[in-house]
Design a protein around this nucleic acid. Sequence first.
RNA 1: GCUCCCUUCGUCUAGCGGUCCAGGACGCCGCCCUCUCAAGGCGGAAACACGAGUUCGAUUCUCGUAGGGAGCGCCA
Length: 514
Amino acid sequence: MRTLSPYFGSGQWRGCLFTRNNPLCQVLAGQGSGILNGLVHHHIPSMNVRTRFAPSPTGYLHVGGARTALYCWLEARHHGGSFVLRIEDTDRERSTEAAVQAILDGMRWLGLEADEGPVYQTARLERYRQVAGQLLEAGKAYYAYESREEIEAMRAQAMARGDKPRYNGYYRDRNEPYRDDPNRVIRFKNPTSGSVVFDDKVKGRIEWSNAELDDFVLFRSDGFPTYNFAVVVDDIDMGITEVIRGDDHVNNTPRQINVYRALGATVPTFAHLPMILGADGQKLSKRHGAVGVMQYREDGYLPQALLNYLVRLGWSHGDQELFSIEEMIALFDVADVNAAAARFDLAKLGWLNQQYLKQGDPSRIGEELAWHLARIGIDPSSGPAPADVVVALCDRVQTLRDMADRARIWYQPIASWDEKAVRKHLHAQTAPLVLQAMLAGLQALAEWTPASIHGVVEQVAGTLQLGMGKVAQPLRVAITGTQVSPSIDHTVYLAGRDEALRRIAHALELAGAD
RNA sequence: GCUCCCUUCGUCUAGCGGUCCAGGACGCCGCCCUCUCAAGGCGGAAACACGAGUUCGAUUCUCGUAGGGAGCGCCA
């Protein structure tokens, strides 16, 4: 089931929030003069920037969509405007409720929540019919009755001539009345001469000859509006001032602008974002890591890191690499976005993630780590405080998932011993002495902190006249079973006193075993 | 096929006619630091797709070419 937007509940066009302050929409929604008259001279007060993110719910929120949402969100925040979420679900075949939820979840995780919406297009069907009817009345649209086969033939013919496959306008001036026909569609009377010009905020000036455009379908024979019609009606009704979307829509823009004009509406500004490519330069697909943003959470990335990575992908501000949300809002401007497509580079995302792992508040990041620990079957309360683990490991991993994995040694018994490590460090001549001394020293320690443990290690090294390596390595193997771990004081500290003593004692046995 | 868009180091980018034998970041390589691994510090290799114009002068402007991409649906 769908939540009907409160703004677009049954028949409330007139009083909807989107139109309340918008004279244009008042008229659009109003009766009498209709959309075509009386609108032309209205100007939307352009002070109030309104952007929207309008995904179709056919899958999860992927990085491309996430970046579009981020840019829309930033643009709105930067100008003190509003960011609206609209769900384009008129394709009932492919739209699913689960996908809507996935998109909402992704946006929430990233912190890109909308000021208004979600608005569902399927809840606005009546409105599209109304506007189409007005277009029909004004002679700016007409009924056409070709069958799909006929259209197909038309296209083939045009192709054969070397033209674009287009509708030939057979019914354009025939003035055919409405009749019950399974092939009935409503087509838009596109201007036949002149051209459409618009200044795209990222692509620059784009000019499109009307001769290239045909009379596209506004309403399908199944009674549903087409995308190109619904977006325009929605964007007008919602008072959208800046349309920011993927550049796969540039080609649609001229025909949409013609619809705005036919409706006498103010045309918003457009910003078409280049797409994000996979690391191999190919279009992002399931095989090329086109995963939902929530997958990045599972992979151990922080939302702030993903956001930072995404904002820098196609946009920059001098040499700055790290941006807080506040800085993004203050500095971002769609007009500064690059026109070329960019590749997604996981290595850089990893670096950024580590930056945030290191800079963030350990206890806050510890909470997220606890989530990851739980995911791999570890009870966070069965060992050291996650925040302490963060401090010990943030310099050594790039993702929380790796961190959780490497934290195992402090929550679970040593799973396997690195034989080479045992041979080299536990069976070293001095190992028994070191472990013995450490055991005694740690036992006697008044307080259990990395600093106090560090003191013991140094003391042992001093009295035994050994280098730090000779002390730390056997100890490290004793605690972890391997020769790689965080600094020795943290490694011992995180084990907790009881467990540390137990492991050292056990290692002592191993050391003396042969 | 037609229309539109794109093109600086491997990658993300700075550059908006001279400041560029092109700057930063990730990655890579080397050195330093060092209890392991990292992190950190220092240094290095690495790019204006090509060809014409315009100009005293092009990475920056124009036009071609090549190579990428998008669209040409009763899908969004």
